[in-house]
Structures are given as C-alpha cells and as structure tokens.
Design a protein around this nucleic acid. Structure first.
Lengths: 395, 395
DNA sequence: GTCGATAAGTTCAGTCGCCAAACTATTGCG
DNA sequence: CGCAATAGTTTGGCGACTGAACTTATCGAC
C-alpha cells in the first residue's frame, strides 16, 4: 500500500540524495554536493552532519584546487562505517566476505563444504559458524555489521524470503534468514537472494562498467544463471523468481533436459555442452587448447554462441536492454565467445541496426555472488541512510 | 538526474495519493480517504478542496449508511474534468476517442484510411483532421483536453518520442508529436507509444482484471504484439522498444520470416498461420467453423498454442510474471486457445507447480490501443494531479 | 421531542525540514 | 594589505502535515 509523505519523507529522500552524490564522486565538498543535487548549502550541511554522526560519511583534509577561495573539505563514504556481510551457500563451498560502504571487499573467506544433498539444518549450522567467524572479524576491526546478504542457488520468494526450491542442494521451503538468526543470535537484517541475481548486482556496483544501468548478466556455470538489471536496479519479478534463462527453449529437437523439455539453453550452451563438443575433460584443459589455437576447441565455443545468441536476442528484444555482461565460465571464454555472440545478437535484435549492442566481459571472478550478497546488504543502508540512522541510533 | 525534495514534493505525493484512493473506490468520503491513506482528516480536506477546485474531483450528495453519525460527502473523479484524447494510426484506419478521468470512453470515431506505404506527411494531415474533430467534440461538451496519446504500429524511442521504424507503414524517424502539434496548433502534451504496449495499458486500467498488476498482454493481429505490465506500470525498456515478441525464435527450422530468421513466433502462431492450417479464408470463417465443432479448425488453433506457449513460458520464466492476457485475435479464439495454452505454460514455467498461472481473456476489442493511448494521456494527470494543477491554473 | 452517542468535517496552534540571504572563514592575487 | 572568490554557518521565514479541540449532522432511545 502506498504511504503518506511528510517532512520526514523529504529528509529521507534528500539524505539518500546527498549520500548518493558523495558515493558517486568521492572527495566532493559540501558546496559541490549542493551544486550537484540542487539542494542549498545550508541543507547539505545539516544532512552531511547527520551522516557523519552515524559514521557513514568521513571528512578528509581540504581539497586541492587552483585559483582563489577557501578550500572545501573532502567528503567520502566512511571505510569505518557499517559493513555488509555476504554469504554464499554453493554446492561445494561456503564463502563469506565483508565489504565496506564503498563496496570494497575488506575481508573474505571460503571453506569447502560438500553441501549437495545434505540436510539443510546441517549445512546451515556450518554456515552459521562461517558467519560467526565473519562477525568476529568485524568486531576485531571495530566495525559494525549493518546487514547480511545470503546468496543461494535456487528460487527465493521475495515476499517471504523463503528459499522455495534449490534443486542442486535438494532443499525445499527453507527459511534461511530465520535459521541463520536463530543459530547466530544475529540482530542485523538478513536478506536472501538468488545467486545469479546477486552476481548481476555485484556487476552493477563493482563491475566498473561505467554508467551502465541496464543489462543482462549471464553466468555460465554448471547451469546458466541470469540476472536482469533495469534502470540501476536488480529486477527480480513479482515473486522473486525472475531471471531464469537456463531453460530457454532454443531448439525444438535438442537433447532432453532434466526439466522435462527439449532443447533447453543449458543443454546446448552450458559448460558441459561446450566441453563435450570440444572433447576436453575440464575447463582448464579447454582454455589451454584455446590458447594454443586448437580449431576444434574454438569451434565448440563458437557453436555455443548460436543458441546463447538466440536466447539472449529474445531477452533483448523483450526488455530492450542495450548490453549483455558475460560472467562465470563465459567470462573466461570471452576472447573466443564474445565476437561470435555479438554477431549473433546484432543479426537478431531489432534495434541493433541503429543501436549497437554491448557485449561485455565481467571482471569479477567466481566471487561475484558473495560480493553481490554483501553489496546488497550495504546498499539497503546507502539507499536509505536516514532510516538506518533513525532505526540504529535512537531506539 | 535525481531531484531534491521539498514541501511541494510532499504535497504532490499526497495529492496523488488522495486522488488515487478516490479513483480506486469512488464514493469514498474525506474521512474514508483519510483512513485509507493514513493522512489526517485535516490534510485530506485541504487536498480534496484543491482537487475539486481544478474539477478533478466531484462532490456528490451524502453517503447512505446505517447507524448514527453525520453522513460523509461522496467523492469521485469528475466526469467534467480534463479528458484524454486517444489516437490510433493503424494500417487501414485512423481511430480517435475521448475518455474522461475514470477511463470511461465518452466519444469515439474511426475513419478508414489506407495508410500503408503512404508518405507520413499525407497520413498525418488526415490524422490532424481527425484530432481537430475530436477537439471540436470536446469543446462542444465543454471539457478541456488534458493530454493526447497516439498509438502507432512501430518502435517508438522513449527519450525523444520519435517513431523510429514502422515497417507496416513504411515510416522511419517521424516526429509524430511535433508534426501533429504543427498541424493542429495543439497545446496539450502529446505522447506516442507502441500500439501493443498501449493496448496492454488499456487492459491494465480498463480490463477489469481486478488487482492484476503484473501480466503480459499478447495481441495476435497481423503480427504478434506484446506489452509487459510490471507492478502496475507499463514496462517499455531503456529506449522504449520493449515488448517485442513476434520474432521470438520458437523453432530452429520453421518458415523463413521477413526479419531474416527462421521459426519466428509470428510465422507459427500468427493469425495467418492459424488460418492457413485451418484452411479458412478469414477470421469470421474460422470462428464459424470452430463454433460448429470443426475438428480441423480446432486442431489448427491448438497447434498455435504450442509455439505460443513456448515463447510465453520463456517470458514468464524470465520476468516471473503470474499471468498472460490474450487480446486481439487471440481473445476471440480464447475458448479454443485458452486451455491448451494454459497446459503448455503449466508444463514449462518453473514456478507453475506451486504458483498457478493465469491465462485471461481480454474483454476489450480492437479498440484497446486507442483506448490505451487516451488512458495514458489522462493517467499522466491522475498520477500527478498537483503538477497538472500548478501548470494548468497558475501560469 | 429532546438528549446523548457517533461520525464527518473544519479550525488553529505547533512542529519540522527546506530555502534565501546574510554572515563568517579561508585562500590567491595584485 | 585589500579585494575577489569560494566554503561553510547562522537565522528568520515559509509551507505542509499533525493533533486536538470544535462545529455540524444524524440516529436512536427514553
């Protein structure tokens, strides 16, 4: 239901506006923020003081600039501010990390853990231990943890936070936040998200694709996961199940898939399909051969570009998104996959003739999902600092 | 760029909130609006007075209710308020209509016009004439025209309002609003949109699908157009080209399409494909045969459900949207198409097992697009009445 | 019929956040 | 040293919402 607005709403909005400006160009002065946001210097001063009191913003020495006039004090997101704690529950490991407000990773850890087909309770106990370690690390650095994000390989229902299905883990209807809170005594917010979606979020905030606010992130791993970013926000659909791309039907008579259909993208352009066609045992082998100029290997990668391009062109036509970011395995295959894919897309996307399509490589490695989870946690603070301050300081 | 907020922002927000509450349940009293929105009675009174002064809201006699206490005055959207003027430029006709704030059609007209492959200028002169007629009609009814919406069969660039491509008209890069304003001396806002997208918008606001805020609207006509509604808003993509579904690749070896690819949805599930497979010359013939229980005709419709289901399941998996609304030709074929399509979708959408998918029939006829255009025009007023009042009354 | 209970709507002082403008502080340059 | 330019603070005022008291209207019971 829509909420009524009052003066507090105004302050909330402007507080976020100011913090966003500072996050966007660190080193800005109060006057600079005022010029950029359209607020007056007086208002900016008040709001910056508030943000600094909550240690979200840090004042640094005076700016360096030529010409006359007093120097402004540089403002930037405080590295001592609240941190985000990211957790990834994967099939074969549990990863954790701490990021500061700027999105910088300040600490991270990975512990191997055979989670496939384990009871959820046992795995979550292990996860809780990893979380406690991370919390200890945060305490040692004397920073508070402002929020926790958990990336899981499955369908997460947005309204409840329930993990509805996780085929690779064999889980159903697990309330990850509640379980985790119960096992750790955690007080901060815990949010859960699909691993591929959170990886896309990491790409948005830390991928370095300057100004790119709309794209589809595709990460080829065992399956094919996708995350859709629209207008600088992760799109996750009515219930949170958005972005499923792996079972896109690209061929009416392809191999049978575990989902029951034929010709799913996953079966035709997934890692296993490429390895199989190239006759390589694993990814390192394939990469070695590609580096050596092996024709068969290159052909196998090019062959994957076709179904991938077919599926992605549909997505691009549907959503009118101007770019695709390739992550996971695809990022490593980028030198061989990028061009064929671009060609495929250019031929199929209706707006391509006058609006070229970006095919970009993800600079983030396999840690994209954890990072996305942690970033999502801090982002709730950065996106609405005033609420965070009001909730965290007064009561 | 994000805008700073001030008191005026608060009023704008709350003004819209109040009007929305009234639009949502006509007959509400000031006290009722207060209870519903969370604002105080005092605030609601002030805002309602403002809205009534601009004749957006009308006071009607006292409410009827049992029990003691003073009766409230019923409030509803004023039918004498500003109207929206909708225009549809189709291949073989130009349609216009006037709708009031409630979305009710108050007047409409269609004039046949062979627009295919005509120079844009000549067609627009004809369109301008139709618009002037509509403006005259509005003047005769003593209502102002608050905005004009134009539906066109092509790709419209959102940032500029330019019609980039209209294959069926043979147009390229036409500035419809400017041309129309020049030919009519119109002062109101003119917005342009893709015909399928606007039809989806009409479905949202006037389709009577109570509370449905997320769906994909598919209208089978000569081509196949789609409109995506997310969270009660039309989604049109980064540049406005979103919702293209006609060239979804559903078969690797289907018939060649004009777009250069093979197996496009349009070729496999479009009206012509169905008619061809049924051996019917036109739609009325097909419908007659279906009514008579003709097996071949029914089989032809069922055959179209497969590719349509394949494409739509991809869309539903990608966007996590819970419902599909069938319009245009598909609405008329609904009794024969609905069930097979539902079955197809239920089998392919990942969340279907625990979240049933709605397959709904559009109650709007071929006039959905004009209506959507007109509705879009009034909606800019209803969505932000305060700005409309400030812009329209003071200067 | 009158009175009390109940609900709708209005009035008014109070609060809060933003704004404009004046003011102080700092720096380079002639 | 004084002036111009820029950063940041102080202050009075304004607009929009709130809460509470007040007025208006209606029913039902005695």
């Amino acid at each position: 239901m829509p909420q009524p607005a009052g003066q507090h709403t105004v302050r909330r909005h402007n507080c976020a506006l100011v913090l966003d400006a500072i996050a966007d160009s660190p080193g800005l002065s109060r006057a600079g923020v005022a010029a950029r946001t359209g607020l007056t210097k007086a208002t900016v001063s008040t709001l910056v003081d508030r943000l600094a009191a909550a240690s979200l913003v840090r004042e640094q020495g005076p700016q360096h600039r030529a010409g006359p006039g007093r120097r402004g004090t540089s403002l930037s997101l405080s590295p001592e501010g609240p941190h985000g704690l990211g957790v990834e529950i994967a099939v074969d490991h549990v990863a954790t990390c701490l990021v500061d407000l700027t999105g910088e990773v300040r600490w991270s850890a990975v512990s191997p853990s055979a989670n496939r087909a384990q009871p959820a309770g046992r795995v979550l106990t292990r996860v809780a231990k990893a979380v406690r370690t991370a919390l200890g690390e945060a305490a040692a650095r004397d920073v508070t943890v402002g929020g926790v994000g958990v990336a899981v390989p499955g369908l997460v229902e947005a309204s409840t936070g329930l993990l509805r299905r996780a085929p690779n883990l064999g889980w159903r209807d697990v309330d990850v936040p509640a379980e985790l809170r119960r096992r750790t005594g955690l007080e901060a917010e815990v949010l859960v998200g699909n691993e591929a979606n959170l990886a896309a979020l990491a790409e948005l905030r830390a991928g370095g694709h300057d100004g790119l606010r709309d794209f589809v992130h595709v990460s080829g791993e065992i399956g094919i996961g996708a995350g859709i970013v629209l207008d600088g926000e992760l799109y996750h659909g009515t219930r949170g199940f958005g972005g499923e791309l792996g079972h896109f039907p690209v061929s009416s008579r392809g191999p049978l898939c575990s989902c029951g259909a034929r010709g799913c993208l996953e079966r035709l352009a997934g890692q296993d399909a490429i390895l199989g066609r190239a006759g390589a045992a694993d990814l390192p082998t394939l990469l070695d051969r590609l580096e050596d100029g092996d024709r068969k290997a290159a052909a196998a990668v090019r062959a994957a570009a076709r179904p991938l391009g077919t599926a992605l062109s549909s997505v691009l036509n549907l959503l009118d998104v101007p770019a695709v970011v390739l992550g996971g395995t695809y990022a490593r295959l980028f030198p061989w996959l990028g061009e064929p894919l671009r060609a495929e897309l250019t031929g199929r996307v209706l707006s391509a003739p006058w609006q070229p399509i970006g095919v970009l490589r993800s600079p983030l490695g396999t840690e994209a999902a954890v990072r996305g989870a942690a970033t999502a946690a801090v982002h709730t603070i950065v996106a609405d600092p005033d609420t965070f301050i009001a909730d965290g300081v007064l009561p």
